[in-house]
Amino acid sequence: MKKSVFLGALTVAGLAAGAAAAGTLDDVKARGTLNCGVTTGLVGFAAPDANGEWKGFDVSVCRAVAAAVLGDATAVEFVPTTGKTRFTALASGEIDMLARNTTWTFSRDVDLKFTFVGVNYYDGQGFMVPKALGVSSAKELDGATVCVQTGTTTELNLADFFRANNISYDPVPIETNAEGQQQYLAGACDTYTTDASGLAATRATFENPGEHALLPEIISKEPLGPLVRHGDDEWGDVVRWTLNALITAEELGVTSANVNEMASGSTNPEVKRLLGTEGTLGEMLGLDADWAMRAISSQGNYGEIFATTIGEETPIALSRGLNAQWTNGGLIYSPPFR
């Protein structure tokens, strides 16, 4: 009895607000903020800076969606999630979308009932070792102690890799990237394994990044992308096409700097459809005509986001590689806006 009164009091007080049932899009619009699940802290992908402002590659996807849906790229509530809590948070409606360098796998899609709306980073699992260890290949790691994040696909890939190569290892399970970094630096494990991008991001925060090397083996495919719940295709479409809009914008040469003049001046019909000066794509999504323009102008196109958060100019210094546009020999490819 007491508890329900207490709950009632807080409901009245407006703490427990929001809805998660049928239309996530309507809920987000009604709420005025987007609840976006991110990692608890991986520099370059999603991490709060010294002022508590979330920054990073995944964060930009969230902000782009918020800009497209709500018209305000700052109307995002970032919910830090661990490997354990991320799927429940999404399934239970605590967050509207998850952009937490999550690998698209069969079982997550089919068994856990999540819809991956696309891939924003093609990654693979790698190993980082101190150069002083004198190891040049992952196959030389027989008997090594390996730090690995629990609840990730990397944990399973690791077991598979060592079994396939018939070598042994001691796993040190850790919960967050921050912990893994501390363990690795303290020498509690010989090597740290996670997505190659994550390794690069982690290494960038070290005091002496030059003393650590990434081994050449990439032992798995890790297509990372944002995901939403099964069964709400309308909302899934919004997130999917916001991501595609960012990718298409790069392909068509639309940047945050020239998006306004492109909208009025471009003669390319696809640019016009994308930016809403021609056709009714926005309306079909349940948004207004400027949705993609807002997303692009607030965050930049895919290439710009990549360059400012994790690109070669940043401390993380990832090259585009697989994540170049298909026109440049990469895998980043958006279906057409038509």
Partner: peptide, 10 residues
Amino acid sequence: GITLNQTGRA
């Protein structure tokens, strides 16, 4: 921990 994370059977 790990079983919960890997299977999602919370």
